[in-house]
Write a protein that binds this DNA or RNA. Structure first.
Lengths: 227, 227
DNA sequence: AGGTCGCGTCAGGGTCCCGTCAAAACCAGG
DNA sequence: CCTGGTTTTGACGGGACCCTGACGCGACCT
Protein backbone atom coordinates (compact mmCIF):
# COMPACT_ATOMS: atom_id res chain seq x y z
CA UNK A 1 0.00 0.00 0.00
CA UNK A 2 1.22 3.46 -0.90
CA UNK A 3 1.48 5.71 2.11
CA UNK A 4 0.76 9.42 1.78
CA UNK A 5 1.69 12.10 4.26
CA UNK A 6 -0.83 14.92 4.01
CA UNK A 7 0.37 18.21 5.45
CA UNK A 8 -2.52 20.67 5.58
CA UNK A 9 -4.02 22.91 8.24
CA UNK A 10 -7.51 23.36 6.82
CA UNK A 11 -9.57 20.58 8.48
CA UNK A 12 -12.21 20.68 5.78
CA UNK A 13 -9.72 20.10 2.99
CA UNK A 14 -8.01 17.40 5.04
CA UNK A 15 -11.28 15.58 5.42
CA UNK A 16 -12.06 15.74 1.71
CA UNK A 17 -8.62 14.55 0.69
CA UNK A 18 -8.46 11.77 3.24
CA UNK A 19 -11.76 10.38 2.01
CA UNK A 20 -10.64 10.50 -1.61
CA UNK A 21 -7.26 9.00 -0.92
CA UNK A 22 -8.56 6.21 1.26
CA UNK A 23 -11.15 5.37 -1.38
CA UNK A 24 -8.21 4.75 -3.74
CA UNK A 25 -6.55 2.54 -1.14
CA UNK A 26 -3.83 4.91 -0.11
CA UNK A 27 -2.69 4.90 3.49
CA UNK A 28 -2.92 8.43 4.83
CA UNK A 29 -1.22 10.23 7.70
CA UNK A 30 -2.24 13.81 8.30
CA UNK A 31 -0.23 16.62 9.87
CA UNK A 32 -1.70 20.05 10.63
CA UNK A 33 1.65 21.88 10.94
CA UNK A 34 5.28 21.73 9.94
CA UNK A 35 6.69 20.30 13.14
CA UNK A 36 4.24 17.41 13.11
CA UNK A 37 4.91 16.89 9.43
CA UNK A 38 8.65 16.46 9.92
CA UNK A 39 8.15 14.16 12.88
CA UNK A 40 5.67 11.98 11.00
CA UNK A 41 7.80 11.92 7.88
CA UNK A 42 10.65 10.45 9.89
CA UNK A 43 8.49 8.03 11.85
CA UNK A 44 6.21 6.72 9.10
CA UNK A 45 8.42 6.99 6.04
CA UNK A 46 5.67 7.90 3.56
CA UNK A 47 6.00 7.12 -0.15
CA UNK A 48 4.86 10.61 -1.10
CA UNK A 49 4.17 13.92 0.65
CA UNK A 50 1.34 16.33 -0.09
CA UNK A 51 2.43 19.65 1.36
CA UNK A 52 0.41 22.81 1.82
CA UNK A 53 2.69 25.84 1.84
CA UNK A 54 0.50 28.02 4.04
CA UNK A 55 1.18 26.46 7.40
CA UNK A 56 0.91 28.29 10.72
CA UNK A 57 4.27 27.43 12.25
CA UNK A 58 6.89 27.15 9.51
CA UNK A 59 7.69 28.48 6.09
CA UNK A 60 6.87 25.90 3.44
CA UNK A 61 10.21 26.14 1.67
CA UNK A 62 11.98 25.42 4.95
CA UNK A 63 9.95 22.25 5.35
CA UNK A 64 10.97 21.13 1.89
CA UNK A 65 14.61 21.81 2.65
CA UNK A 66 14.39 20.00 5.96
CA UNK A 67 12.90 16.94 4.30
CA UNK A 68 15.41 17.00 1.48
CA UNK A 69 18.18 16.97 4.05
CA UNK A 70 17.62 13.27 4.58
CA UNK A 71 14.97 12.01 2.20
CA UNK A 72 14.20 11.95 -1.49
CA UNK A 73 10.52 11.21 -1.04
CA UNK A 74 8.43 12.89 -3.78
CA UNK A 75 6.90 16.16 -2.56
CA UNK A 76 3.76 17.62 -4.17
CA UNK A 77 3.14 21.18 -3.08
CA UNK A 78 -0.39 22.52 -2.72
CA UNK A 79 -0.73 26.27 -2.55
CA UNK A 80 -3.14 29.11 -3.07
CA UNK A 81 -0.31 31.30 -4.34
CA UNK A 82 -0.24 31.47 -8.10
CA UNK A 83 2.79 33.74 -8.38
CA UNK A 84 5.55 32.02 -10.31
CA UNK A 85 8.15 33.20 -7.83
CA UNK A 86 6.62 30.99 -5.15
CA UNK A 87 6.57 28.04 -7.48
CA UNK A 88 10.17 28.50 -8.53
CA UNK A 89 11.32 28.76 -4.92
CA UNK A 90 9.46 25.61 -3.90
CA UNK A 91 10.58 23.58 -6.90
CA UNK A 92 14.20 24.65 -6.55
CA UNK A 93 14.13 23.83 -2.87
CA UNK A 94 13.43 20.25 -3.87
CA UNK A 95 9.70 19.90 -4.50
CA UNK A 96 8.63 17.61 -7.34
CA UNK A 97 5.40 19.29 -8.36
CA UNK A 98 3.32 22.35 -7.55
CA UNK A 99 -0.47 22.46 -7.74
CA UNK A 100 -2.39 25.69 -7.22
CA UNK A 101 -5.68 25.79 -5.34
CA UNK A 102 -8.37 25.35 -6.25
CA UNK A 103 -7.42 22.15 -8.00
CA UNK A 104 -9.30 19.32 -9.58
CA UNK A 105 -9.13 16.23 -7.41
CA UNK A 106 -8.68 14.08 -10.49
CA UNK A 107 -5.68 16.09 -11.58
CA UNK A 108 -4.15 15.92 -8.14
CA UNK A 109 -4.55 12.17 -8.05
CA UNK A 110 -3.01 11.85 -11.51
CA UNK A 111 -0.01 13.94 -10.49
CA UNK A 112 0.29 11.84 -7.36
CA UNK A 113 0.26 8.63 -9.41
CA UNK A 114 2.95 10.08 -11.67
CA UNK A 115 5.15 10.93 -8.70
CA UNK A 116 4.73 7.50 -7.13
CA UNK A 117 5.29 5.73 -10.45
CA UNK A 118 8.69 7.34 -10.84
CA UNK A 119 9.94 6.02 -7.52
CA UNK A 120 8.64 2.55 -8.30
CA UNK A 121 10.60 2.45 -11.53
CA UNK A 122 13.85 3.43 -9.89
CA UNK A 123 13.76 1.62 -6.56
CA UNK A 124 16.28 3.77 -4.75
CA UNK A 125 16.73 2.53 -1.24
CA UNK A 126 15.31 5.09 1.13
CA UNK A 127 18.21 7.04 2.55
CA UNK A 128 19.37 6.19 6.04
CA UNK A 129 18.36 8.60 8.75
CA UNK A 130 21.48 7.92 10.73
CA UNK A 131 24.96 7.79 9.26
CA UNK A 132 27.42 5.96 11.46
CA UNK A 133 31.14 5.55 11.32
CA UNK A 134 33.62 4.08 13.74
CA UNK A 135 34.45 7.54 15.07
CA UNK A 136 31.25 9.56 14.91
CA UNK A 137 27.61 9.43 13.90
CA UNK A 138 25.38 11.90 12.10
CA UNK A 139 21.66 12.16 12.88
CA UNK A 140 20.19 13.67 9.73
CA UNK A 141 16.76 14.30 11.19
CA UNK A 142 17.77 15.82 14.48
CA UNK A 143 20.56 17.63 12.62
CA UNK A 144 23.09 16.53 15.19
CA UNK A 145 26.57 15.13 15.09
CA UNK A 146 27.77 12.94 17.92
CA UNK A 147 31.35 11.98 18.67
CA UNK A 148 32.52 9.99 21.69
CA UNK A 149 29.05 10.36 23.16
CA UNK A 150 29.34 14.14 23.00
CA UNK A 151 27.29 16.44 20.85
CA UNK A 152 29.43 18.22 18.27
CA UNK A 153 28.36 21.76 17.60
CA UNK A 154 28.13 22.56 13.87
CA UNK A 155 27.34 25.90 12.29
CA UNK A 156 24.63 26.03 9.59
CA UNK A 157 27.14 26.22 6.76
CA UNK A 158 29.18 23.35 8.15
CA UNK A 159 26.05 21.27 8.47
CA UNK A 160 24.88 22.01 4.95
CA UNK A 161 28.21 20.93 3.53
CA UNK A 162 28.39 17.80 5.65
CA UNK A 163 24.83 16.87 4.77
CA UNK A 164 25.53 16.87 1.05
CA UNK A 165 28.58 14.69 1.49
CA UNK A 166 27.15 12.09 3.85
CA UNK A 167 23.89 11.66 1.92
CA UNK A 168 25.96 10.54 -1.07
CA UNK A 169 28.37 8.13 0.60
CA UNK A 170 31.31 7.13 -1.55
CA UNK A 171 30.32 9.50 -4.31
CA UNK A 172 32.66 12.18 -5.50
CA UNK A 173 31.04 15.60 -5.22
CA UNK A 174 32.64 18.23 -7.42
CA UNK A 175 33.72 21.57 -6.00
CA UNK A 176 31.41 23.28 -8.44
CA UNK A 177 28.44 21.32 -7.15
CA UNK A 178 29.25 22.05 -3.51
CA UNK A 179 29.76 25.75 -4.14
CA UNK A 180 26.53 25.92 -6.12
CA UNK A 181 24.57 24.08 -3.46
CA UNK A 182 25.88 25.76 -0.32
CA UNK A 183 26.85 29.24 -1.48
CA UNK A 184 24.81 29.60 -4.66
CA UNK A 185 27.84 30.42 -6.73
CA UNK A 186 29.56 28.21 -9.22
CA UNK A 187 32.67 30.31 -9.62
CA UNK A 188 35.74 28.22 -9.27
CA UNK A 189 37.48 31.27 -7.81
CA UNK A 190 35.99 30.77 -4.37
CA UNK A 191 37.31 27.37 -3.51
CA UNK A 192 38.77 28.90 -0.35
CA UNK A 193 35.32 28.55 1.19
CA UNK A 194 35.49 24.84 0.68
CA UNK A 195 39.00 24.57 2.04
CA UNK A 196 38.15 26.53 5.18
CA UNK A 197 34.95 24.64 5.94
CA UNK A 198 36.32 21.22 5.13
CA UNK A 199 39.11 21.98 7.56
CA UNK A 200 36.53 22.94 10.20
CA UNK A 201 34.57 19.75 9.69
CA UNK A 202 37.67 17.59 9.86
CA UNK A 203 38.80 19.34 13.03
CA UNK A 204 35.43 18.63 14.61
CA UNK A 205 34.87 15.09 13.35
CA UNK A 206 38.09 13.35 12.36
CA UNK A 207 40.33 11.85 15.00
CA UNK A 208 43.37 12.90 12.99
CA UNK A 209 42.29 16.01 11.06
CA UNK A 210 45.48 16.23 9.01
CA UNK A 211 45.09 12.64 7.82
CA UNK A 212 41.35 12.41 7.22
CA UNK A 213 39.71 9.02 7.06
CA UNK A 214 36.16 10.01 6.15
CA UNK A 215 36.22 13.42 4.49
CA UNK A 216 38.48 12.72 1.57
CA UNK A 217 39.97 15.25 -0.85
CA UNK A 218 40.19 14.41 -4.53
CA UNK A 219 42.68 16.99 -5.79
CA UNK A 220 41.41 19.06 -8.65
CA UNK A 221 37.98 17.45 -8.57
CA UNK A 222 36.18 17.69 -5.26
CA UNK A 223 35.49 15.82 -2.04
CA UNK A 224 33.97 12.54 -0.98
CA UNK A 225 32.62 10.98 2.20
CA UNK A 226 33.79 7.43 2.86
CA UNK A 227 31.55 5.43 5.15
CA UNK B 1 25.48 19.53 -20.74
CA UNK B 2 21.81 18.72 -20.35
CA UNK B 3 20.11 17.98 -23.65
CA UNK B 4 16.48 18.97 -24.18
CA UNK B 5 14.22 17.71 -26.94
CA UNK B 6 11.66 20.42 -27.71
CA UNK B 7 8.56 19.15 -29.52
CA UNK B 8 6.45 22.08 -30.63
CA UNK B 9 4.89 23.16 -33.93
CA UNK B 10 4.52 26.87 -33.28
CA UNK B 11 7.72 28.40 -34.71
CA UNK B 12 7.39 31.53 -32.62
CA UNK B 13 7.22 29.59 -29.35
CA UNK B 14 10.08 27.36 -30.49
CA UNK B 15 12.24 30.38 -31.10
CA UNK B 16 11.49 31.90 -27.71
CA UNK B 17 12.14 28.66 -25.86
CA UNK B 18 15.31 27.83 -27.75
CA UNK B 19 16.76 31.23 -26.89
CA UNK B 20 15.86 30.87 -23.23
CA UNK B 21 17.16 27.33 -22.97
CA UNK B 22 20.41 28.00 -24.76
CA UNK B 23 21.00 31.02 -22.53
CA UNK B 24 20.88 28.59 -19.59
CA UNK B 25 23.38 26.33 -21.31
CA UNK B 26 21.00 23.60 -22.31
CA UNK B 27 21.55 21.78 -25.56
CA UNK B 28 18.36 21.93 -27.60
CA UNK B 29 16.98 19.80 -30.42
CA UNK B 30 13.67 20.90 -31.89
CA UNK B 31 11.01 18.76 -33.57
CA UNK B 32 7.91 20.25 -35.23
CA UNK B 33 5.88 17.04 -35.28
CA UNK B 34 5.49 13.67 -33.62
CA UNK B 35 7.35 11.60 -36.18
CA UNK B 36 10.40 13.82 -36.03
CA UNK B 37 10.19 13.85 -32.26
CA UNK B 38 10.31 10.09 -31.96
CA UNK B 39 13.16 9.85 -34.43
CA UNK B 40 15.18 12.52 -32.64
CA UNK B 41 14.47 11.03 -29.23
CA UNK B 42 15.99 7.75 -30.38
CA UNK B 43 18.91 9.35 -32.18
CA UNK B 44 19.92 12.05 -29.70
CA UNK B 45 18.93 10.49 -26.39
CA UNK B 46 17.84 13.73 -24.69
CA UNK B 47 17.90 14.12 -20.91
CA UNK B 48 14.41 15.61 -20.88
CA UNK B 49 11.55 16.12 -23.34
CA UNK B 50 9.32 19.19 -23.63
CA UNK B 51 6.22 18.04 -25.48
CA UNK B 52 3.40 20.09 -26.92
CA UNK B 53 0.22 18.06 -27.11
CA UNK B 54 -1.30 19.88 -30.07
CA UNK B 55 0.79 18.48 -32.89
CA UNK B 56 -0.39 18.17 -36.50
CA UNK B 57 0.42 14.54 -37.19
CA UNK B 58 -0.04 12.53 -34.01
CA UNK B 59 -2.03 12.54 -30.81
CA UNK B 60 0.10 13.69 -27.90
CA UNK B 61 -0.78 10.79 -25.66
CA UNK B 62 0.33 8.36 -28.36
CA UNK B 63 3.71 10.07 -28.49
CA UNK B 64 4.07 9.68 -24.73
CA UNK B 65 3.17 6.00 -24.94
CA UNK B 66 5.60 5.47 -27.81
CA UNK B 67 8.41 7.08 -25.85
CA UNK B 68 7.58 5.17 -22.71
CA UNK B 69 7.85 1.98 -24.69
CA UNK B 70 11.61 2.18 -24.53
CA UNK B 71 12.67 5.17 -22.47
CA UNK B 72 12.16 6.68 -19.04
CA UNK B 73 13.29 10.12 -20.04
CA UNK B 74 11.33 12.79 -18.12
CA UNK B 75 8.50 14.25 -20.21
CA UNK B 76 7.07 17.70 -19.52
CA UNK B 77 3.84 18.32 -21.37
CA UNK B 78 2.91 21.78 -22.64
CA UNK B 79 -0.70 22.30 -23.60
CA UNK B 80 -3.34 24.91 -24.11
CA UNK B 81 -5.99 22.52 -22.80
CA UNK B 82 -6.88 23.23 -19.21
CA UNK B 83 -9.41 20.47 -18.88
CA UNK B 84 -8.37 18.06 -16.15
CA UNK B 85 -9.31 15.09 -18.34
CA UNK B 86 -6.49 15.92 -20.73
CA UNK B 87 -4.03 16.27 -17.89
CA UNK B 88 -5.03 12.97 -16.33
CA UNK B 89 -4.71 11.18 -19.64
CA UNK B 90 -1.25 12.60 -20.33
CA UNK B 91 0.05 11.97 -16.83
CA UNK B 92 -1.29 8.44 -16.72
CA UNK B 93 0.23 7.73 -20.11
CA UNK B 94 3.60 8.38 -18.55
CA UNK B 95 4.20 12.12 -18.56
CA UNK B 96 6.01 13.58 -15.58
CA UNK B 97 4.49 17.04 -15.52
CA UNK B 98 1.85 19.10 -17.27
CA UNK B 99 2.05 22.85 -17.81
CA UNK B 100 -0.83 24.81 -19.31
CA UNK B 101 -0.27 27.66 -21.75
CA UNK B 102 0.24 30.45 -21.30
CA UNK B 103 2.94 29.65 -18.79
CA UNK B 104 5.62 31.67 -17.07
CA UNK B 105 9.01 30.88 -18.53
CA UNK B 106 10.53 30.93 -15.04
CA UNK B 107 8.07 28.34 -13.84
CA UNK B 108 8.72 26.12 -16.83
CA UNK B 109 12.45 26.30 -16.26
CA UNK B 110 11.99 25.48 -12.57
CA UNK B 111 9.87 22.44 -13.42
CA UNK B 112 12.47 21.41 -15.94
CA UNK B 113 15.22 21.68 -13.34
CA UNK B 114 13.14 19.59 -10.96
CA UNK B 115 12.68 16.88 -13.58
CA UNK B 116 16.36 16.81 -14.46
CA UNK B 117 17.41 16.83 -10.81
CA UNK B 118 15.43 13.65 -10.14
CA UNK B 119 17.21 11.71 -12.85
CA UNK B 120 20.60 12.91 -11.66
CA UNK B 121 20.05 11.45 -8.22
CA UNK B 122 18.85 8.10 -9.50
CA UNK B 123 20.69 7.63 -12.77
CA UNK B 124 18.76 4.89 -14.54
CA UNK B 125 21.50 3.48 -16.72
CA UNK B 126 22.12 5.70 -19.72
CA UNK B 127 25.05 3.30 -20.06
CA UNK B 128 26.73 0.90 -17.73
CA UNK B 129 27.55 2.94 -14.64
CA UNK B 130 29.92 0.27 -13.42
CA UNK B 131 32.62 -1.11 -15.70
CA UNK B 132 34.11 -4.35 -14.45
CA UNK B 133 37.06 -6.40 -15.58
CA UNK B 134 38.79 -9.36 -14.04
CA UNK B 135 41.45 -7.13 -12.52
CA UNK B 136 39.74 -3.87 -11.62
CA UNK B 137 36.40 -2.06 -11.71
CA UNK B 138 35.49 1.51 -12.56
CA UNK B 139 32.57 3.27 -10.88
CA UNK B 140 31.60 6.03 -13.26
CA UNK B 141 29.17 7.88 -11.00
CA UNK B 142 31.24 7.75 -7.84
CA UNK B 143 34.32 8.50 -9.95
CA UNK B 144 36.25 5.71 -8.31
CA UNK B 145 38.57 2.99 -9.50
CA UNK B 146 39.00 -0.15 -7.41
CA UNK B 147 41.69 -2.79 -7.79
CA UNK B 148 42.17 -5.75 -5.49
CA UNK B 149 39.66 -4.20 -3.11
CA UNK B 150 41.83 -1.10 -2.84
CA UNK B 151 40.86 2.35 -4.00
CA UNK B 152 43.09 3.54 -6.81
CA UNK B 153 43.83 7.25 -6.73
CA UNK B 154 43.47 8.88 -10.14
CA UNK B 155 44.28 12.48 -11.04
CA UNK B 156 41.70 14.54 -12.96
CA UNK B 157 43.49 14.14 -16.29
CA UNK B 158 43.96 10.42 -15.80
CA UNK B 159 40.30 10.06 -14.95
CA UNK B 160 39.13 12.09 -17.93
CA UNK B 161 41.17 9.95 -20.29
CA UNK B 162 40.05 6.69 -18.72
CA UNK B 163 36.42 7.77 -18.78
CA UNK B 164 36.45 8.30 -22.52
CA UNK B 165 38.02 4.91 -23.15
CA UNK B 166 35.84 2.79 -20.88
CA UNK B 167 32.59 4.39 -22.00
CA UNK B 168 33.32 3.14 -25.51
CA UNK B 169 34.41 -0.43 -24.80
CA UNK B 170 36.08 -2.18 -27.70
CA UNK B 171 35.99 0.92 -29.84
CA UNK B 172 39.13 2.49 -31.19
CA UNK B 173 39.53 6.10 -30.07
CA UNK B 174 41.85 8.16 -32.24
CA UNK B 175 44.67 10.19 -30.75
CA UNK B 176 43.19 13.30 -32.27
CA UNK B 177 39.89 12.68 -30.54
CA UNK B 178 41.53 12.06 -27.17
CA UNK B 179 43.74 15.13 -27.43
CA UNK B 180 40.79 17.24 -28.45
CA UNK B 181 38.60 15.97 -25.65
CA UNK B 182 41.07 16.06 -22.76
CA UNK B 183 43.48 18.84 -23.67
CA UNK B 184 41.41 20.86 -26.11
CA UNK B 185 44.09 20.62 -28.77
CA UNK B 186 44.03 18.48 -31.86
CA UNK B 187 47.67 18.93 -32.86
CA UNK B 188 49.29 15.63 -33.54
CA UNK B 189 52.54 17.08 -32.20
CA UNK B 190 51.55 16.54 -28.58
CA UNK B 191 51.04 12.82 -28.55
CA UNK B 192 53.57 12.65 -25.72
CA UNK B 193 50.73 13.69 -23.43
CA UNK B 194 48.92 10.54 -24.37
CA UNK B 195 51.95 8.33 -23.97
CA UNK B 196 52.70 9.67 -20.51
CA UNK B 197 49.16 9.41 -19.21
CA UNK B 198 48.43 6.04 -20.75
CA UNK B 199 51.55 4.79 -19.02
CA UNK B 200 50.28 6.19 -15.71
CA UNK B 201 46.91 4.53 -16.14
CA UNK B 202 48.47 1.18 -17.01
CA UNK B 203 50.80 1.40 -14.04
CA UNK B 204 47.83 2.01 -11.76
CA UNK B 205 45.38 -0.47 -13.28
CA UNK B 206 47.08 -3.21 -15.25
CA UNK B 207 48.66 -6.16 -13.46
CA UNK B 208 51.47 -6.20 -16.03
CA UNK B 209 51.80 -2.59 -17.22
CA UNK B 210 54.30 -3.39 -19.96
CA UNK B 211 51.98 -5.99 -21.48
CA UNK B 212 48.60 -4.32 -21.14
CA UNK B 213 45.48 -6.42 -21.31
CA UNK B 214 42.80 -3.73 -21.16
CA UNK B 215 44.33 -0.44 -22.30
CA UNK B 216 45.48 -1.41 -25.76
CA UNK B 217 47.63 0.62 -28.14
CA UNK B 218 46.76 0.68 -31.81
CA UNK B 219 50.01 1.93 -33.35
CA UNK B 220 49.58 4.98 -35.49
CA UNK B 221 45.88 5.22 -34.76
CA UNK B 222 44.97 5.54 -31.11
CA UNK B 223 43.90 3.50 -28.10
CA UNK B 224 41.14 1.10 -27.19
CA UNK B 225 39.68 -0.32 -23.98
CA UNK B 226 38.97 -4.05 -24.02
CA UNK B 227 36.39 -5.25 -21.52
C1' DA C 1 71.39 -3.63 -42.75
C1' DG C 2 70.61 0.86 -41.76
C1' DG C 3 67.36 4.42 -41.05
C1' DT C 4 63.08 6.28 -39.49
C1' DC C 5 59.07 6.54 -37.00
C1' DG C 6 56.14 5.71 -33.15
C1' DC C 7 55.76 4.17 -28.55
C1' DG C 8 57.09 3.44 -23.52
C1' DT C 9 59.72 5.08 -19.66
C1' DC C 10 61.88 8.22 -16.57
C1' DA C 11 63.04 12.30 -14.00
C1' DG C 12 63.15 17.30 -13.26
C1' DG C 13 61.05 21.80 -12.87
C1' DG C 14 57.27 25.01 -12.88
C1' DT C 15 52.67 25.81 -11.72
C1' DC C 16 48.53 25.18 -9.51
C1' DC C 17 45.92 23.38 -5.70
C1' DC C 18 45.18 22.36 -0.93
C1' DG C 19 45.59 22.92 4.18
C1' DT C 20 46.34 26.16 7.77
C1' DC C 21 46.10 30.26 10.35
C1' DA C 22 44.49 34.63 11.67
C1' DA C 23 42.33 38.89 11.12
C1' DA C 24 38.50 41.54 9.29
C1' DA C 25 33.55 41.92 8.27
C1' DC C 26 29.08 40.60 9.37
C1' DC C 27 24.92 39.49 12.18
C1' DA C 28 21.62 38.62 15.96
C1' DG C 29 20.46 39.12 20.60
C1' DG C 30 20.78 41.44 24.73
C1' DC D 1 25.80 50.14 21.63
C1' DC D 2 28.15 46.16 22.80
C1' DT D 3 29.20 41.10 22.50
C1' DG D 4 29.66 36.36 20.96
C1' DG D 5 29.45 33.53 17.23
C1' DT D 6 29.68 32.96 12.24
C1' DT D 7 31.15 33.91 7.70
C1' DT D 8 34.31 35.94 4.54
C1' DT D 9 38.96 37.22 3.20
C1' DG D 10 43.91 37.25 2.55
C1' DA D 11 48.48 35.28 2.93
C1' DC D 12 51.69 31.59 3.12
C1' DG D 13 54.11 27.02 2.82
C1' DG D 14 54.16 22.48 1.16
C1' DG D 15 52.87 19.04 -1.87
C1' DA D 16 50.53 17.18 -5.86
C1' DC D 17 49.96 17.47 -10.53
C1' DC D 18 51.04 18.61 -15.29
C1' DC D 19 54.20 19.56 -18.80
C1' DT D 20 58.54 18.74 -21.05
C1' DG D 21 62.67 16.79 -23.03
C1' DA D 22 65.76 12.90 -23.36
C1' DC D 23 66.59 8.13 -24.06
C1' DG D 24 65.91 3.25 -25.53
C1' DC D 25 63.45 -0.09 -27.91
C1' DG D 26 60.96 -2.43 -31.47
C1' DA D 27 58.40 -2.34 -35.93
C1' DC D 28 58.33 -1.18 -40.45
C1' DC D 29 60.25 0.49 -44.75
C1' DT D 30 63.74 1.01 -48.11
Amino acid sequence: MTRVLLVEDDPQLVRALVINLQARHYGVDAAPDGATALRLAAARRPDVVLLDLGLPDMDGVDIIKALRGWSRVPILVLSARQASGEKVAALDAGADDYVTKPFSIDELLARLRAAVRRTEDAPHAPGPLLVETADFSIDLIAKKAIRDGQDVRLTPTEWHLLEILVTHPGRLITQKHLLQEVWGVSQRSKTNYLRVYMAQLRRKLETDPSHPRYLITEPGMGYRFEG
